[in-house]
Write a protein that binds this DNA or RNA. Structure first.
Lengths: 336, 336
DNA sequence: TTGTATGCGTTATCAG
DNA sequence: CTGATAACGCATACAA
């Protein structure tokens, strides 16, 4: 309720006890007589005392914080994930220190290091940095976790969703609808997630698709900007790396007079909240962020307790079919 | 590059100097001979030493962090604001500790206090708590700032955007387009921002409008859920508290077979990135987050330097007319 | 059950 | 320019 300048010694003096006792009371240790504890608590409350996290951290060697690094907060997917992780963190009394790299791949190592300095543990979400850098960052940092990125030698440990099979499912859907030539809008250049999705699209050749690719990016603007290049390839279906990208594509398609899915089909990935509200609503794949977050925290909790990192788990995304996909146009794409 | 267990004394020992010297070097003080400084720096780098923020904090009495509390991270408006503030913070070497209350008004005081314990300064964005609580939270916390909330007696100090006149502009637009009966979708119950917007809508009576109101909320789902109640009031235009809300309304309107703006007009507020990509694109008001963020940081910087808090500044939002507004239907709304 | 004393990693104030 | 050393606020063995 009040300021933060009151220290433990003032409380001790005011209550007529030693700072050790106050410390014990504040930590809720049972080894203090109920009366004394009550009195101390009373004094502390009255003075508006609250322990200094830093002093406490210095003494105990832990900060009570976990750091999280994400590529971009502007993608709803990431803060939904953060939120999901936060449920468990909150429950265990941890605060989350969130940092975004804003897709500046070169900054990731520094940001991760900085996070590690402030927190007891660090979670790297979809880091884009090269395996070498990742290895270097991991070096000597036993409490580092990795989400949605599988590194070379499994370091750092972590959890990744299976992006491959749902993307293949999307392709299968497209194939059964008569599509053949499809264009993949690539997302973040060094993203493992993006690589997996593209890998799946490539595999769709086995399904009879003819997959092409244009470089876009993990944002609305990137999707918008890459659309024309994709259309030049005369596809009947467009597969965006994620929903954000797909939303940009959708707008551009409308501008050039193409109807979705009549003239061309479009899919996203992630199932962010907005995807239900585009017109047409986006066919996409839903990553179970809640479950993923739960598992990530379980893992972090184990790591924080110096337990052996549990085996890598793979959650699975599921395809959500909505209105942006349909039968391939009989006479190919009608463009211009 | 490496772990965080190396302390200043190890560097000192390895370099054959005192910890005081190492400390000076790490702080970049000029009072160290260039050669020595270079050697120390070399050793530090080699050992992978990085100063402990906690120990440093304990010694200096500052954390190098500023806390930010927002109602919800799921609203792009807020993280755009956070990002804007972050530009200045980064520049001055501060880290931001972001917490969201998730619209749990009752938790705000605790969250703010917790933030204050970890940071040198705290920024409250659109806090919803009552004036009394706000006053209590402010008590004895000289480094608290408030964004988009004007409290009773100007405490805590801060910056707020003028929401009133742009909302009145929106109403004026509607009035000139022949609308008369309009319904306002109220946002967060205890939000100053929401109150200001509604106040403006009420004032639009002077423009010839007949403003009604339904309770919704600051989210897509809230807008969606409140739409039927609003339509029951037979309006020709709907004014959502913010864009998120408007997006939900739009979807529901489509479901019940109403065309925007032919059958009914719709407006949002904030101009989040998605609003350009809805169909029709949303007429809304753009809050200059970049400028706002800049000013907020300037103010925080002053506060952190113990300077007198500069006068309260008001930025101004501007109306962005897009496709969701149009002439009122001649024969009133066609519903059902 | 309670108090005393030491250490946590830095900064900063003094002396040299 | 450099080196001891006393804080900083707290937790915790160790004593009592």
């Amino acid at each position: 309720m009040a300021s933060g300048k009151i220290t433990i010694s003032e409380v001790a003096r005011e209550a007529g006890v030693s700072i050790a006792t106050v410390s014990r009371v504040m930590q809720g240790r049972p080894s203090v007589s109920p009366d004394l504890a009550r009195r101390v608590r009373e004094v502390a409350r009255h003075l508006g005392y609250s322990p200094s996290p830093m002093a406490r951290g210095l003494a105990t060697g832990s900060t009570g914080m976990v750091g999280i690094l994400v590529p971009q907060l502007s993608n709803p997917y990431f803060h939904e994930l953060i939120k999901a992780i936060g449920v468990g963190a909150d429950h265990d009394g941890y605060r989350m220190l969130v940092l975004e790299s804003d897709e500046r791949v070169a900054d990731e190592p520094d940001l991760a290091a900085s996070l590690y300095a402030h927190a007891d543990g660090v979670i790297l979400c979809s880091p884009r940095m090269a395996d070498d850098d990742l290895e270097r960052v991991t070096l000597g940092r036993p409490r580092l976790l990795c989400v949605n990125r599988i590194a070379r030698d499994g370091q750092p440990p972590g959890i990744a969703c299976d992006m491959f099979s749902p993307m293949l499912d999307i392709c299968r859907l497209l194939a059964t609808q008569g599509h053949r030539r499809v264009v993949y809008f690539a997302g973040a250049p060094y993203s493992w997630v993006n690589a997996e999705r593209w890998r799946a699209v490539q595999h769709s050749a086995a399904l009879g698709l003819d997959p092409l690719r244009v470089q876009a990016g993990p944002s609305i603007d990137a999707g918008y900007a890459a659309t024309d290049a994709a259309l030049a390839l005369s596809p009947t279906a467009l597969i965006a790396a994620n929903d954000l990208c797909a939303i940009g594509v959708l707008t551009r398609l409308r501008e050039v007079g193409l109807q979705v899915p009549r003239d061309v089909s479009l899919t996203g990935f992630d199932d962010i909240p907005f995807s239900r509200h585009t017109l047409p609503a986006l066919t996409t794949a839903r990553i179970p962020r809640l479950e993923l977050g739960r598992q990530v925290w379980a893992m972090m909790r184990a790591v924080l307790a110096d337990e052996a990192p549990p085996a890598r788990v793979l959650a699975t995304a599921e395809v959500v079919v909505r209105d942006s996909t349909g039968p391939a146009p009989a006479s190919g794409i009608r463009y211009r």
